[in-house]
Design a protein around this nucleic acid. Structure first.
Length: 450
RNA sequence: GACGAAGUAGCACAAUGGUAGUGCACAAGAUUGUGGAUCUUGUGGUUGCGGGUUCGAGCCCCGUCUUCGUCCCCA
């Protein structure tokens, strides 16, 4: 049997044309984030398992790619009686960029009090691949540590909104909710706090499976019909209610709960800040938004679009996470763009213009020219900033030109003994067919002005 | 992890249980310093893998692997 030439399931090779698009999007993201004062960091692909475990909830722990002990340690581990999963691995591939950031913050106390970092790197999850879903995929995170101000929330929401708008994509809404508010809603419905996690999972599907679907799922998980109905009553937004009205409604429903009132007041402040930001007109209050990750403590966000079923990104406040790595707590808030899904949507909506990759020009030549002269000509063009490929052999000219066209070059230079003697190139435009003899400098100028 | 569909040439797809084809792509050629169009010719497949039924299997049956959907969950 031949060895499979496919990358592992859920992982991909990127060919030049696709990579050019990916880089274009990444560049836009970087430029936008930097306008907000975010600075880049990178962290290792691999983290200690102890860093990763217990931060994402049970589901997250299941999806961690673990790395086996090496050499003798593995052999020893395998010999221990009743060896379990935990004994075999000590490292894992990072699951997101937030937990590594928390570790990095705890490990570098000299960083600025308000550290605004962005990070664009791959993460790994041992998930089953599907549409817009991979085992290796990139995330583009912005986070602000050190501040409890809602300006931090507003800034990250504004930054990701601006990224999407700069890429020409405006069909999105940032759904907003608050972890404390959710907790209070569940309590108000009479559901035990120990059932919070499973309740949230069911509630989060409201817009997907509908009211009956959620009721059914809650019932299956042992929540009484009266409780689930009470919860849905609270969470469901009446038709025609605007953002302020929805917040007002929640405030009235939970008026006896000071914790809930505080959370709602934060959302009120946040929405007013967002109205002055790039996220204006691109957010909504969604009391059913839950988000799976365990570490969120305050406002939570998620990017939704009718162009993609699922989330295009998400984030929130996590004031306790850094404290898990450090004695003292440091508040933080972040937002992550799901790069692969964004790319998918941009592609489907035709929002990529012409993104070129490959050389501007291929130098075709004959065997009556010294190879060294060809290299000299190529380097002369390159010095002017032209992307040049030399056809490495000397078959008949037609083949050389056909090749240049096949790789997407718009120009060819033809170089024979006569051109070499005059130090010129016969520059041919492959679309118009026009051809002129020009010296190297004029050739470069002509290509770059095109 | 659950369910469904599909695996045939590099790619896209055909083939009432009876000799595996078509298009695109690729290669060569139509007076050797000019590509795209047309034409001619040609290369290319143990039909995903392993069993079974049959005189005979790409087709039917079982298993297996892979891929793609939907669910679950997520970015």
């Amino acid at each position: 049997m031949a060895i499979s030439t496919k990358p592992p399931s859920g992982m991909r090779d990127f060919l030049p044309a696709e990579l050019a698009r990916r880089r274009y999007v990444i560049e836009t993201i970087q430029q936008t984030y930097e306008k907000y004062g975010f600075v880049p960091v990178e962290t290792p692909s691999i983290e200690n398992l102890s860093t990763l475990l217990g931060k994402y909830g049970d589901e997250g722990d299941q999806l961690l790619f673990r790395i086996l002990h090496r050499r003798d340690k593995l052999a020893r581990a395998l010999e221990t009686p009743e060896v379990g999963e935990k004994d075999l691995a000590d490292l894992g591939l990072r699951y997101d960029l937030t937990v590594p950031l928390a570790r990095l913050i705890a490990n570098n106390p000299e960083l600025p009090k308000f550290f605004k970092r962005y990070q664009i790197q791959p993460v790994w999850r041992a998930d089953r691949p599907g549409r817009g879903r991979f085992r290796e995929f990139w995330q583009c995170d912005v986070d602000i540590t050190g501040s409890k101000s809602l300006i931090a929330e507003a800034e990250v929401c504004s930054a990701v909104s601006e990224v999407l708008l700069n890429l020409g994509f405006s069909n999105f809404e940032i759904h907003l909710n608050h972890r404390q508010l959710l907790k209070c809603l569940i309590k108000a419905a009479g559901i035990a706090l120990e059932n919070e996690a499973l309740t949230l999972v069911a509630v989060d599907k409201l817009d997907k499976i509908g009211i009956e679907g959620v009721e059914k799922e809650l019932e299956q998980r042992g929540i009484s019909a009266a409780q689930s109905r009470a919860l849905l009553e609270l969470i469901q937004r009446p038709c025609g209610l605007d953002e302020a009205g929805e917040l007002q409604r929640l405030k009235q429903a939970l008026s006896d709960n000071s914790e809930a009132i505080t959370a709602i007041a934060q959302l009120e402040t946040l929405t007013s800040l967002l109205d002055s930001s790039k996220a204006a007109g691109h957010y909504c209050i969604d009391a059913s938004l839950a988000r799976g990750l365990g570490y969120y403590t305050g406002p939570i966000f998620e990017i939704r679009s009718s162009d993609f079923s699922g989330s295009l990104g998400g984030g929130g406040r996590y004031d306790g996470l850094i404290g898990m790595f450090k004695g003292s707590e440091i508040p933080a808030v972040g937002f992550s763009i799901g790069f692969e899904r964004l790319l998918l949507v941009l592609e489907e909506k035709g929002l990529f213009g012409q993104i070129s990759c490959g050389p501007d020009i291929v130098i075709c030549h004959f065997d009556d020219v010294a190879d060294s002269a060809v290299i000299e000509a190529a380097n002369s063009l390159r010095q002017h900033g032209v992307k040049v490929e030399i056809y490495p052999e000397t078959p008949k000219l037609g083949k050389q030109i056909a090749y240049a066209e096949s790789i997407g070059a718009t120009w060819v230079a033809i170089m024979g003994a006569s051109e070499a003697a005059e130090k010129v190139l016969s520059l041919k435009h492959l679309v118009s067919g026009e051809q002129h003899k020009l010296n190297y400098t004029d050739t470069a100028a002509r290509i770059l002005n095109n």
